[in-house]
Design a binder for these strands. Structure first.
Lengths: 145, 145
DNA sequence: TTATTATAATTTGAATTCTAACATTTAGAA
DNA sequence: TTCTAAATGTTAGAATTCAAATTATAATAA
């Protein structure tokens, strides 16, 4: 079924536009000025603290080298800390500081509110099928690993 | 149904990881070295030539300012041309050169083959529901405009 | 007509990200 | 043990992208 695969490829190419449309016009006001990668990092940390640099770099979509700079900046701003993981001295586990947690909370709420307000324009049926579609896709991620 | 909206927001946040997983390990070998934005631009041009700079910048996910640089580089490499649209002298319509078209074809094929080979790991049923889910999402894009 | 506002693309310097090389540590094989 | 290969994170310089101001054109109102 290579035909289906190619169709999937075509659709995947359009996903960034989808998220772009959803995020259009979002405005996240934080006490400290942050780049998008910094905001994303805080959001992921807010959900799952204590993972490695490499893990977060993948979630944010940066190379390890670039993510080092992001972590440096967040640490300089006092929002995260690198903690050592004893059983593997190569790894750094990242955690939020108190202020980092408070700002991450703000970002998380803004993000959710913005998207919720966008999809409110859909009727109930479309919204439901959108949610189902997203769940299908996300659950497919795991099967590909 | 703000609850559904928030759930959607959470899932949307995971989409970049999904595309990241699908594209992991992709290797596009072209006669001329290209950046990712340049490759994306050629792919979109391959599908729809003659749109404006702003239109492509949105598809690629760059600001207009950044996209000017991408178009400059592609023009310097002889892969695209800016053509004037007579009825609006502000706009530049982009078109592929002969070589640009040939390279765009390579990129398009590599992209599709790579993703097709990835999703081959899924069984027929999962593959079908993935395709349906993607179609649902893409068709939702339009309704939000 | 003229003035005003909006749109398309460019420019510039600053900020961010990438690529490639590196040091350190771990895991596994010989 | 020792060797080799792989994984983690960092570094440095090049490449890319961003934000904001600018120019030119178009659309609209006065």
């Amino acid at each position: 079924m290579a035909v289906v695969g190619e169709k999937v490829a075509e659709l995947v190419g359009m996903l960034p536009m989808f998220t772009g449309t959803l995020l259009e016009g979002i405005e996240i006001r934080t006490p400290i000025k942050l780049s998008i990668s910094e905001e994303k990092t805080l959001m992921f940390l807010y959900k799952h603290e204590g993972k490695s640099m490499t893990a977060y770099s993948k979630k944010v979509g940066l190379t390890r080298g670039s993510f080092t700079a992001v972590a440096d900046r967040l640490e300089d701003k006092g929002l995260i800390e690198r903690t050592s993981v004893c059983d593997d001295r190569r790894k750094n586990a990242l955690i939020l500081t108190k202020e980092g947690k408070s700002i991450a909370k703000i970002i998380d709420r803004c993000f959710k509110q913005h998207i919720a307000s966008k999809v409110e324009l859909l009727d109930a049926e479309d919204l439901k099928s959108l949610k189902n579609a997203l769940e299908t896709i996300v659950s497919t991620i795991d099967k590909l690993k």
